[in-house]
Design a protein around this nucleic acid. Structure first.
Lengths: 137, 137
DNA sequence: CTTGAACCTCTAGTGACTAGAGGAATTACA
DNA sequence: TGTAATTCCTCTAGTCACTAGAGGTTCAAG
């Protein structure tokens, strides 16, 4: 049995966030002491680790909830879990591609006035200048 | 002179968002018609395009505001603009590196049950399994 | 048995919008 | 000039995923 603080230490999830997940129905309501404090078991620990990990992967809480209700599912439901993962992957690839384009442009911008800022810095101009960049974003 | 709708069409920024920027002090308060509707000039249009573009680059509104107040600045202030751009670039590179790691892991996860979902889908297991992945995130 | 750390609930704030209600102004066309 | 459609106005509240703080209670160690 863990207190909320211990659970927090074990998982790296902050205490208010744990309570927030409980509130949202992602984490099952734990037992309580006579004094109303939360006491968690290993199932809760695993569940919270699952949430933490999937959050780190960038899944929104709604998707995580869907996955949690699918646990131990069979047949079609499993396809749904698979779908969530695939959709997530393609989202991720989009995000990466987009950021790569922006990186290029930021490089251009910072180069624009590297070294001498004599009079008018090109950075400000470059920031505002959408026309220069090759890709529309 | 543009109405708010026209400005929105020209820049791709949604109407409520334009008003929101004005509220936050990013966009100067425009003139109004006798009937209290906003009328924008080309300076506003340029300003909004600047905001739009820098937002697309991932800058938070606070940084954008800082850049806007630096417009036409000299000397040390220009270094600040440069700093904002450099900081933004390194943030961006961090984000990209992180997402690349996550991509790898999502690939692993989706591969885990490609094809046959006979009985227990490995996706769910893989999502929860933090130990498998090479990098801690 | 006392003290200090950890816990409780509840409200409100963050960033960057977005949606909707309820009403007023503008524009297009007859 | 009339009227209907469209656009605009302000204001409030909701989104997501937390985070911070107030004010009070309970637990664990010495």
């Amino acid at each position: 049995m863990y207190s909320i603080g211990e659970l927090s230490r074990q998982t790296g999830v902050k205490i208010p966030t744990i309570r927030f997940y409980e509130d949202k129905g992602l984490l099952p309501e734990p037992e309580r002491t006579a004094g109303n404090q939360r006491r968690y078991d290993d199932a809760s620990l695993r569940c919270l680790r699952f949430i933490r990990h999937t959050r780190d992967l960038g899944l929104p809480l709604a998707d995580i909830e869907a996955l949690l209700t699918l646990e131990g599912a069979h047949g079609d439901d499993l396809n749904r879990a698979h779908d969530i993962a695939e959709r997530q992957l393609s989202d991720l690839r989009d995000r990466i591609a987009r950021l790569r384009r922006l990186e290029k442009e930021l490089v251009r911008i910072t180069r624009a006035c590297d070294g001498q800022h004599d009079h008018v810095c090109a950075v400000l101009h470059a920031f505002g200048d959408h026309g220069i960049c090759e890709s529309s974003h």
